[in-house]
């Protein structure tokens, strides 16, 4: 699949933003949140990251001015659900921001923080399910895909929260190591799965054997080939995977020793590479009509 930078930036930035808001709100739910101004600073950073990601994602659209229409089909579409969840999560976030900005009564903080925790989890889960619900792409159609989105959001957002409060070193390091372990398992598992759809299935005539392309329908690549047929050289992918894993591991060590501001740069780069590979390595079933044997 073609790696679109707008979407990669969106999931990396908004993932970190929602992760930060998750930790901040969770701390407040347990009554262990930081003071008013630190909380406000963290809330603003989280909101900026989330909003920058969401704005970036609209640049992926052919018709960004119609983006509001995407809130309507939450009954069937994970993309629509993500949009609804993202907007709904702004409500308790705004409530918390007003309370901390104007120093209002803190009675509602626990409730609003709980709603924010809930909203961030649902939004990131929906992001993962946009990909996790597509049977056409075996690298995405997996139960661990939304889990990895959640854990990596918690890892990168955790580093940001750690930078504000200078605490929770162990918890954040655990989240990052969990993300690393899940991703290592993911890569091992997708590598040994050849794909269950074959070119014989695509053409429906197994009695005639496996076809080889003779004449393409067009002389130059079309939309389908550019969007679904993106191929990354295996050795480049392996190198990027190694970089991403080393950076994530480095970030977790730095989190443990209490250097989150440096760690967040490493983890951000790692997640960026991981997201790029998530697209670039993904194989689409439609490529069976363009010479692929399995997908």
């Amino acid at each position: 699949m073609h790696p679109a930078y707008t979407v990669i930036f969106f999931t990396t930035a908004s993932g970190a933003g929602y992760g930060l808001l998750f930790w901040l709100s969770l701390a407040h739910v347990f009554g262990a949140g930081p003071d008013r101004w630190t909380s406000l600073g963290a809330l603003i950073l989280g909101t900026v990251l989330v909003s920058a990601g969401l704005v970036s994602s609209t640049y992926h659209l052919g018709r960004p001015e119609r983006a509001w229409r995407a809130f309507s089909q939450w009954r069937s579409s994970w993309l629509s659900r993500e949009g609804v969840a993202a907007v709904a999560t702004y409500l308790p976030m705004t409530g918390l921001g007003l309370i901390w900005l104007f120093g209002l009564s803190e009675n509602l903080v626990t409730l609003l923080a709980a709603l924010t925790v809930f909203g961030t989890l649902i939004t990131v889960y929906c992001t993962g399910m946009i990909y996790g619900s597509l049977p056409t792409i075996r690298h995405w159609y997996r139960t661990d895909v939304p889990v990895i989105y959640l854990v990596l959001a918690a890892g990168t957002g955790g580093l940001l929260f750690q930078s504000f409060v200078d605490d929770y070193n162990l918890l954040v390091a655990i989240a990052l190591v969990a993300g690393l372990a899940l991703k290592m398992w993911y890569w091992m598992d997708v590598d040994r799965d050849p794909g269950k759809y074959t070119s014989e299935m695509a053409f429906g005539m197994p009695q005639l054997g496996a076809p080889t392309p003779l004449d393409p329908p067009h002389t130059q690549p079309n939309f389908i080939m550019r969007e679904m047929g993106y191929v990354v050289a295996r050795k480049h992918a392996k190198r990027l995977r190694t970089f991403a894993m080393v950076l994530l591991f480095g970030a977790s060590v730095l989190a443990l020793v209490g250097l989150p501001w440096i760690a967040v740069l490493l983890a951000g780069a790692a997640v960026w590479m991981e997201r790029w590979l998530f697209f670039a390595e993904a194989e689409h079933v439609s490529m069976l009509y363009y010479g692929a044997q399995r997908a």
Partner: peptide, 23 residues
Amino acid sequence: CIGCKLCSWACPYGAREYDYDHG
């Protein structure tokens, strides 16, 4: 249509094509 292209990802037959000018 907002041109998000998700439908083209969901189709296994490669039957949908994005119109870059019309968006």
